[in-house]
Simulated assay, not measured.
Amino acid sequence: MTVQQRRQRERENRRQLILTTARNLAEKSGWDSVTTRALADTIEYSQPVLYQHFRNKDAIVAAVAQQGFGELAEALHRGRTTTPGGLRGLIEAYVSFAAENPKLYEAMFVIPVDLDFGVEESPDELVAAFGEIIAALEPLGAPRDRIDTVAEVVWSACDGLVTLERSGRLRPAYHAERIELLTQQILATPK
């Protein structure tokens, strides 16, 4: 390994340490507790070292969110491929992911971040997560532009379930029934 390769690896490790620490601080105390000073103190680097990797806290939150979309894509894939029919498993995986990672989900969907959605420049992680929803819908046999639109509706519906359940606006005893009803409604969508 060359000196340059070693330095690059160390730089990537520092970057990941910053992101992991930011996520851990947020999960413990909320995103307001994630400041460059708190991160620097926790990881025992100076603030200028953080600024070598990220221009500000918003950039850190965006990078955490981007990684979160990669994790969401993996969860959706498992849910889609391990459940007969796929769509129900994908919806359950989405809702479970949000419940298990509340502050990460907040970074991904609540906090305004500098990530482009639905455009050619969208990060691979976002494309992969959206692609899992599309893959679950492809058996419907609709044209691709229709599948993309239905996928946006599925994503929106899942986010709505997460948001309303998290805020206590829905009856907990009917969680499974809501997921089943959403699945059936999507499967009944005209082509």
Rank of each mutant, 00 (worst) to 15 (best):
V3L: 02
V3T: 10
Q8T: 12
R11G: 10
E12D: 13
N13R: 15
R14Y: 06
R15I: 01
I18G: 08
L19V: 04
L19G: 03
T21S: 12
N24G: 13
E27I: 06
G30T: 10
S33C: 07
V34D: 02
T36A: 05
A38D: 13
E44L: 06
Y45E: 10
P48N: 04
R55C: 03
N56E: 07
K57Y: 13
A59H: 14
V64M: 06
A65Q: 12
A65W: 11
Q66R: 13
Q67T: 11
F69L: 04
E74F: 07
E74H: 10
R78W: 08
T82N: 08
G89K: 08
L90Q: 04
Y94K: 07
V95L: 07
A99I: 05
V113Q: 06
L115Q: 11
L115F: 04
D124E: 13
V127P: 02
A129I: 01
I133R: 02
A135C: 01
A136K: 05
A136T: 05
E138T: 14
E138Y: 05
L140V: 13
A142L: 13
I147Y: 11
I147K: 03
V154D: 01
A157Y: 01
A157F: 06
T163D: 01
L170W: 10
R171S: 12
A173R: 08
Y174I: 03
R178W: 11
I179A: 05
Q185H: 11
L187P: 02
L187R: 12
K191D: 08
